[in-house]
Computed example of a mutant assay.
Amino acid sequence: MAEILSSNPDVPKGRKAFIPLENNPEVMSSLVHTLGLSPSLAFHDIFSIDEPEMLAFAPRPASALLFVFPVSKTYEKHRVEEDAEKAEYEGKGEGEPVVWYKQTIRNACGLIGILHAVSNGSAREFVTPNSDLQKLVDGAVPLGPIERADLLYNSQALEKAHQGAASQGQSNAPGAEDDVDLHYVCFVKDAKNDLWEMDGRRKGPINRGSIGEEDVLSEKALGLGVRLFLKREEEAQGGELRFSLISLAPSMD
């Protein structure tokens, strides 16, 4: 497999491409439940992080947070600068604090973000034994990043579940080969209470610092992740920013 340069981390044309998932919690929940995540957990829209009364409606604790945004020049500049001094990630095995997936399928950043959410932290406890999801995660853990990416690339169960979810959206989905500017970054908490930024376009997972006993939707976690991103974008662009937040948390059913 050809390496993807950090200056241009997007998957090259000619690689397998998926129809992009709709930015929709119901579609995402359907995907992970099909793979084998317990219905006790589901994805939820977060409508505001600045209005406490709105945030109070969000189910807690949130085990993962998906941050969805259009890739901008500001974001790309920050990514290149931050990754410049980092070596390519080589983590694997049971001692790995988080399970990170390198993206090698075009238009699959939503899928990679979802897999980061369900493969890490407390969400792992809700994976159904002997399910496709458990087999996928258990198979990924001992592998290095390239072999792990190949595992996802070649997984028929994952491709089938993704195709089923992609057909459920309410909007007209782009084609698998289309260029899509929306990107997904996932935030998870490890067993030592550190917050990790999980992005398949980066050189590896990024430890953003300790959040103690708080969840990934807490003000402390937001301050170490999402709010820093928004501050950079606002300073560079000004005006209102387009983004979405989706949490993985207890189901409301």
Rank of each mutant, 00 (worst) to 15 (best):
P61T: 02
R106I: 06
I114H: 03
V80N: 07
D132S: 12
E82R: 13
P145E: 09
N130I: 01
V71P: 05
E159I: 12
P97M: 10
Y101E: 06
D83Y: 06
L143M: 09
E159S: 15
E85G: 15
Q103F: 01
V68N: 14
C109A: 02
V141F: 06
A108Y: 11
V80G: 04
K92Y: 09
L143K: 09
C109V: 05
G144C: 03
G139T: 11
I114V: 15
F69G: 01
I105F: 12
E82S: 13
E94Q: 14
G113L: 00
K102A: 12
A87W: 06
L152Y: 06
K160F: 06
Q134L: 09
V137Y: 09
P129L: 10
R148V: 12
A62I: 06
E147I: 04
N120L: 05
S63H: 15
E147C: 06
V137T: 03
T104W: 12
N130H: 10
E147S: 14
G110I: 03
N107M: 04
L143C: 03
P142E: 08
D138T: 14
T104G: 02
A157N: 11
S72P: 08
K135R: 15
G139H: 12
A84H: 09
I146R: 14
Y101W: 14
L111A: 14
L133G: 00
A62Y: 02
V137Q: 11
V98L: 08
I112F: 02
G93N: 10
G113T: 02
H116V: 02
P145R: 05
K92V: 04
Q103V: 00
F69A: 13
E94H: 12
E88T: 14
E94M: 14
V127K: 00
V141A: 03
E85I: 07
D138M: 15
S119L: 06
A123H: 00
A157E: 13
L115Y: 08
R60L: 07
A157I: 03
S131A: 07
K102T: 09
E147G: 14
P142M: 08
D83A: 13
G91A: 11
K135L: 15
D132N: 13
V118L: 02
L136S: 14
I112D: 00
K160I: 12
L65Y: 00
V141C: 02
T74H: 01
Y153Q: 13
K92H: 13
P61F: 00
L65R: 02
V137R: 07
P145K: 07
K102D: 06
E81K: 10
L66W: 00
K77P: 01
S72I: 11
A62M: 10
L66P: 00
K77V: 08
Q134A: 15
L143F: 09
T104P: 00
G139E: 10
Q103K: 04
P70M: 04
P145M: 07
S72K: 08
P97T: 11
K77I: 09
G139L: 12
E90C: 10
E88D: 15
C109Q: 03
E88K: 14
N107D: 10
I105G: 05
L115V: 07
S72D: 08
E90F: 07
R79M: 12
A123C: 07
D150V: 11
R124W: 01
L152R: 06
E159D: 14
D138I: 12
E81V: 04
T104R: 15
V98N: 12
P70G: 05
S72T: 15
T128P: 01
